[in-house]
Simulated scan of single mutants.
Amino acid sequence: MINSLALISFLTDDYDKAIRWFQTALGFVLLEDTDMENGKRWVRMAPHPTAETAFLIAKAVGEQVDYIGRQAGGRVGHFLFTDDFDGMLARMQNAGVTFREAPRNEPYGKVVVFEDLHGNPWDLMQPTKT
């Protein structure tokens, strides 16, 4: 049996705002945007077209709205790996992304904590080659 992680839900209050942020700030591609009627859409985004795992952009409703920006309870919940840390950092700075710290070198790689459009903390990381 082979299993894979296909989708991770990303809560937002606005599909189009989230799509623009992922495209502009992170360079993600829009894989799918299907109208599901009644204001719902099936929106998938990923770092590149052949990525194994993608985000399902989910418009929060009801009590879900309370969790926008708090999806991981204040901890870093998403880890974006890159092979060009400095280039990605520059792209994100140019897009106005908020960083919680200066980039640092750790035994596992170069890393910086940033916030997505709703304030969720993420790590941008270039892993150390072993």
Rank of each mutant, 00 (worst) to 15 (best):
K110S: 05
R75A: 13
Q71S: 10
W42N: 08
R100Y: 00
H78F: 14
A18T: 09
Q93P: 09
Q126C: 04
R70G: 14
A58W: 15
A51R: 03
V113R: 04
D16Y: 05
D116W: 14
L89A: 00
I57A: 05
M125E: 05
P107H: 08
H118W: 06
R75S: 11
Q23H: 03
A46C: 03
I2R: 07
D84M: 06
N94F: 01
L11M: 06
L5N: 03
Q23Y: 06
L124P: 04
V65D: 04
E37S: 07
I2P: 04
D14G: 04
V61N: 10
L26Q: 12
I8N: 01
I2T: 06
R100G: 04
G39Y: 05
I57G: 11
H78D: 05
P127K: 08
G39V: 11
T82F: 00
N105V: 12
D33A: 02
W21Q: 13
R44V: 12
L11C: 07
G109R: 13
M92N: 08
V111R: 15
T53I: 06
F99Q: 03
I19A: 07
G69Y: 07
L11P: 12
I8R: 02
G87I: 13
G77N: 06
P103Q: 13
R100F: 01
F79A: 04
W42K: 03
D35P: 03
F28R: 00
D83R: 10
N94T: 11
T34G: 00
F28K: 01
L5W: 15
L7H: 15
G96T: 03
K59D: 07
T98K: 08
W21S: 03
I2V: 12
L124A: 13
V112M: 00
